[in-house]
Amino acid sequence: MSEAVRLQSPLVGFQLDARADAGVILRERAFCSHLNLRGEQSDPAFAAAIKQVLGLEVPFTPNTTTSAGDQTLYWLGPDEWLLVAAPEQAATLEAALRKALAGQFASVVDISGGQTVVELRGGNARDVLAKGCPLDLHPRAFGVGQCAQSHLAKCPLLLRPLADGFEVVVRRSFSDYFFSWIEDAAQEYGFSVVS
């Protein structure tokens, strides 16, 4: 997309409100490049092509991730992965991956406009997610290097534990509901939105 294009993230309009004592601190990583990848785990060429383009191993273990730099590959299903990369990379990555995967039973789809990345930190980040998400979010059960798709109340999401919080990938159309829900649920802990 050209420089002149004015972009709006799904969470456009929400006010920053940095508060030091907040138990839940939300930060959006807007405009990341999101690519949905589907391919055959059993075909060695698939992992090879991904590795060649991204330098990343494909996480074949369910509900795990691989990361390097600002790129992360998430396991979504036995033949489905999500690549999240820095903004403005989607078209380039899509083309490169398509080329590398040509001839394979694989697909690459740009879904950058369809979802956004949110990070939740603070002493009550786990508590606030637990209010609506049925996953066991305890570090013994869900640690760095893992990911999981689940729901928060009625909002589908993809979760990844960070060293000091959680990363959440939310669908665009649900992001307003997600934000309102978190803001409400975080009321008892104090809530802050940072850039």
Binding site: P62, N63, G77, P78, P134, L135, A148, S150, H151
Partner: peptide
Amino acid sequence: PWCGPRAESE
């Protein structure tokens, strides 16, 4: 069979 034990609501 892929993700392990999860709540029915999923």
